[in-house]
Design a protein around this nucleic acid. Structure first.
Lengths: 227, 227
DNA sequence: AAATGTGATTAACATTTAGTTTACCTTTAA
DNA sequence: TTAAAGGTAAACTAAATGTTAATCACATTT
C-alpha cells in the first residue's frame, strides 16, 4: 500500500480527461494527462507511469501509433497500456494488439467499472510474486496467507500493523532498522506518524510472542534475533 | 509442457476469429478456425481439439445445436467447449447447459481475461483431483452438486451468493481473502459491486452456520477457519 | 397482468477494534 | 547521576466491520 500508482491519460477530449482524472485521483492514483499522442509520449518518458489510458481516435497521431512508440521505450516495459475505444470493433483489429496493448475499454466510460478494472489490474500484478510467503524464525512461523503467527504450534492472531511489523523484521532477520526505516517500509512513504508509534507496536508484539525475539539497539532501532 | 494444446474457434465474424487466433497463438496454442457450425464439426472430427470456442449466435447452425453434435462425437469426450455469448443471459437458458458446454465467455471479449481463463482451464484439467464437488470443513459438508450445506447432519439451504462465498472460502480454507479478491473470484471480473456487499453476505452466512467459521482479519479480509 | 416472494445490493447507522498520541516511568550509558 | 532513549499504560482518534433496513430486479404465483 506504500506508493501511489501513476496513471497517464491521453485523450483529445478535455471532458474525458477531467472525468477520468477526477475518478482516478479519488482512488488515490497520481494522474497526468496529455491532449495528444505526441505529448503523451513526451510525458510518459519522464513520468514513467504504471498505466497509460490511451484513446485510439486522436488527431495528430492516433493511439495505435502512439502505443507503438511507447512500447519501444524500455523504461515503460512494466507499464500497462489500455486503449479507450469508441466502438468495440475498433479493438478487434489485429494492428491494435500487435502494438502491445494489454486491454481495452469501450466508451462511453462508466467510472465505477473502469476503477474496478484498474484496481484489479494492479492487484493482480502485485500478487503475482508472493505466492506462499511463510517465514520461519526460531520457533516462529509467520504465514502471510492465513495471516497467522505460529509459536511452537500455538496460533497467535496479531492485528494488521503488528503482523506487518513482525513480518518485516522476520524477512530481514538480524538486521537493525531505525524507527524511520520501519515507518517507511511498513506504513508507507506518504503516511505521517510519529516514530514513537513503532515503540508501542513493538511492545504489543513482544507482549504476544514474548521477550527474546525483538531486541532494541539503543540509539539505533530494532531487530529480530536469529536463533 | 510437452505438447501444444489445440484450440478450435467457431465464429461467423472474421474479426473475432483473427483476434482470438492471434492471442491464442501468442500463448503457444495450436489454432484452427471455422466460420460456421457445420464446418466446425467437420474440422473438429479431424483436428480433435482440446478446446472449442463456440459462438452461440451463428447463421446456418447455431452454437447450441453445434455443441450437441460435438458432444455426440466420442473422440471429443475430453474436449472442453466454451460458449461465446453476446449477453450473459443467453447462457442461462437450460438448452445451453444441457448440451454439455463447460463454460461461457461473454462478449465483448477481453483478450487478457480470456487467455488467463483458458490457461487456468488447462491447468485445472491437468491436476485432475479437484473433480469432487464436496468439501468438508469441520462439521460442514458443502455439496456443490446438490447446492446444499450440511452441518452435523442438518441441511442448510443458502442462496446462491452465500453458497458460493462459503464454497470459495472452504476451497481455500485458512487463507485470507480481501473483499476485492472475493468479488473477483465469486462475482466475476466484469461485475461491479461495492466491496461492502461482501460484508453483508458474510453476515448472512454466519447467521446460518453460526460463529466460529468465518473469521475477520481487520484491514485484510475474511477467511474460513480450519478445524 | 397484478400481487407476492426472494435474493442481491446499497445505504445508513451502530459498534468494535486498531492505531496513534500523550504522559509518565524506567533503564542505560556517558 | 543524570540526560537521553526506550518502556508502558491509558486516553484518544480514526477505521473497519457489524448490522439492520430500504430498495431494486426478477421469478413465481394467483
Amino acid at each position: 500500500m506504500a506508493e501511489e500508482k501513476k496513471v497517464l491519460i491521453v485523450d483529445d477530449e478535455p471532458d474525458i480527461l477531467d472525468l477520468l482524472k477526477y475518478n482516478l485521483e479519488k482512488e488515490g492514483y497520481l494522474v497526468q494527462t496529455a491532449l495528444d499522442g505526441i505529448k503523451g509520449v513526451e510525458i510518459a518518458k519522464q513520468f514513467i507511469p504504471d498505466l497509460i489510458l490511451l484513446d485510439i481516435m486522436m488527431p495528430k497521431q492516433d493511439g495505435v501509433e502512439t502505443c507503438r512508440q511507447l512500447r519501444d521505450l524500455s523504461e515503460l516495459s512494466h507499464t500497462f497500456i489500455i486503449f479507450l475505444t469508441a466502438r468495440v470493433e475498433e479493438y478487434s483489429e489485429v494492428a491494435a494488439f500487435e502494438t502491445g496493448a494489454d486491454d481495452y475499454i469501450a466508451k462511453p466510460i462508466k467510472p465505477r467499472a473502469l476503477m474496478s478494472r484498474i484496481n484489479a489490474l494492479f492487484r493482480r500484478k502485485n500478487s503475482k510474486q508472493s505466492e506462499n510467503e511463510k517465514i520461519e524464525v526460531g520457533d516462529l512461523v509467520i504465514d502471510r496467507e492465513s495471516y497467522v503467527v505460529y509459536q511452537s504450534g500455538n496460533e497467535l492472531n496479531l492485528p494488521k500493523k503488528e503482523f506487518e511489523l513482525l513480518y518485516f523484521l522476520a524477512q530481514h532477520s538480524g538486521k537493525v532498522f531505525s524507527r524511520e526505516d520501519l515507518l517507511h517500509n511498513i506504513w508507507g512513504t506518504d503516511v505521517y506518524v510519529l516514530a514513537r508509534t513503532v515503540d508501542v507496536h513493538v511492545r504489543k508484539v513482544r507482549e504476544k510472542i514474548g521477550e527474546g525475539y525483538i531486541s532494541t539497539i539503543k540509539g539505533v532501532g530494532y531487530k529480530l534475533e536469529i536463533n
